[in-house]
Simulated assay, not measured.
Amino acid sequence: MNERLKSVYRPAVGPKLQPWLWVVQVGFAALAANGVYLASVSAMTWWLGTTQQTPFYMLMVFLHLLLGFLIIAPFLGFGLVHLATSWKRPNVQAVRYGLLLFATALAILISGLVLLRFDAIAIRDPALRSIAYWLHLFAPLVAIGLYVKHRLAGPRIRWEWARRGGVIVAGFIVAMTLLHSHDPRTYGVKGPRQGKRYFFPSEAVTADGRFIPAETLMMDQYCLKCHEDAYKGWFHSAHHFSSFNNKAYLASVRETREVAIKRDGNTQAARWCAGCHDPVPFFSGEFDNPKYDDVNTASSQAGITCVVCHSITNVNSTRGNADYTIEAPSIIRLPAAKTSSSSGSIRR
């Protein structure tokens, strides 16, 4: 009787550890699907020679980072506990593949951390970053093979669950591919009823006829991080002081708006000036508000920002009066890239 009890098989992953295994498996599956999408976009960029990185792609990069950080603690917890309870099990082959799998997964996570860039902590050595990049790219393939070997050396794999998981992962990849051309920044953005004709009598238009959020056009501090000299030149330029932060212009446009309201009942005639001088409040839709605070509102002090100029996609003619097309810039404001408005000061 005692001999029979001793020979009873006890699974390496018990009931208490099973939920953590599911968390780790689902987390790495989501990372893998997301990684396939990101890698395919990078491959297309290399193949075509033009960037394929859309705003949705940048959102998926952020998701990849988020999932990566969230999986670290559950993975280490499960891996270390599983290692402690399985280290001396008689199935040497399963233990060996498990150790290799654990080491490979650690390499994936560590290489991902190496590729991160923070202001305070960043590994900038090109050779080291290159090694980390290729390791992060191909180590998951090794991990998949080791996981299958690890499971084949132990209890029977439930292939029906594997197939279901594969279908879900494939569906996730397809969904990301279909959403690749979508711009999350436009979700919920209210456009003018008149579409592109809203901006008349200014000749300037947005590419899609919608408004562009003011904060998106006021990211000069973001530019400052890499282009300090250019930022300093802009900060003291006529471009910066083209709008309501210029007292002469402020007096002129205030009068224009007042006359337009008395004559037409609205401020639309002042759009003639706004296309050149006030792109931030103009393209965000704030300019037409008769009660617009032209002194204390951040957009009123922005002027012609760095982002405005670099977001112009086409000069439609040379007849003047701001005859250009502008689109929302392809910048996603990740937590590490959050900035203040362009009205902030800089040390002289």
Rank of each mutant, 00 (worst) to 15 (best):
R197N: 14
F199M: 04
P201T: 11
A204L: 15
A204H: 13
A204N: 07
V205D: 08
V205F: 11
T206L: 04
A207Q: 15
G209K: 09
R210W: 12
R210E: 01
R210K: 14
F211I: 03
F211D: 00
I212V: 12
I212P: 00
P213Y: 07
P213R: 11
A214S: 06
E215W: 01
T216N: 14
M218H: 02
Q221W: 14
Q221C: 01
Y222L: 14
C223N: 14
L224T: 05
K225C: 04
K225S: 08
E228Y: 13
E228G: 13
D229E: 10
A230Q: 11
A230P: 08
A230K: 14
A230I: 15
Y231M: 14
Y231Q: 12
K232I: 04
K232A: 14
W234M: 01
F235M: 07
H236T: 15
S237P: 09
S237D: 02
H239V: 09
S243M: 02
N245W: 09
N245Y: 15
K247L: 09
K247Y: 10
K247I: 13
A248L: 05
L250S: 06
S252W: 04
S252N: 05
R254V: 09
R254D: 02
E255T: 11
T256D: 06
T256L: 12
T256I: 14
R257A: 08
R257F: 00
E258N: 11
A260D: 15
A260T: 09
D264Y: 11
D264V: 12
D264P: 06
G265I: 03
G265D: 03
N266D: 14
T267V: 08
T267N: 13
A269G: 03
A269R: 15
A270W: 05
R271G: 10
R271I: 13
R271C: 10
R271Q: 10
C273N: 05
A274Y: 10
A274D: 02
G275C: 13
G275D: 08
C276Q: 07
C276A: 10
H277N: 06
D278I: 01
D278H: 00
P279L: 03
V280I: 12
V280K: 00
P281K: 04
P281N: 04
P281D: 05
F282M: 08
F283S: 15
F283P: 00
F283T: 02
F283M: 06
S284Q: 06
E286Q: 08
F287S: 02
D288W: 05
D288N: 03
P290M: 01
P290V: 07
K291W: 08
K291M: 11
K291R: 15
Y292P: 04
D293F: 03
D293G: 08
D294L: 07
D294C: 13
N296F: 15
N296Y: 15
N296R: 13
N296S: 10
A298Q: 05
S299L: 13
Q301N: 13
I304P: 02
T305D: 03
C306K: 04
V307Q: 00
V308P: 04
S311H: 03
I312T: 09
T313G: 15
N316W: 02
N316G: 03
S317G: 13
S317C: 05
T318H: 11
R319C: 00
R319V: 03
G320P: 09
N321C: 03
A322G: 05
A322M: 10
T325A: 08
T325D: 01
I326G: 01
E327A: 07
P329V: 02
P329E: 03
P329A: 01
S330G: 09
I331W: 00
R333A: 03
R333T: 11
P335R: 13
A336P: 00
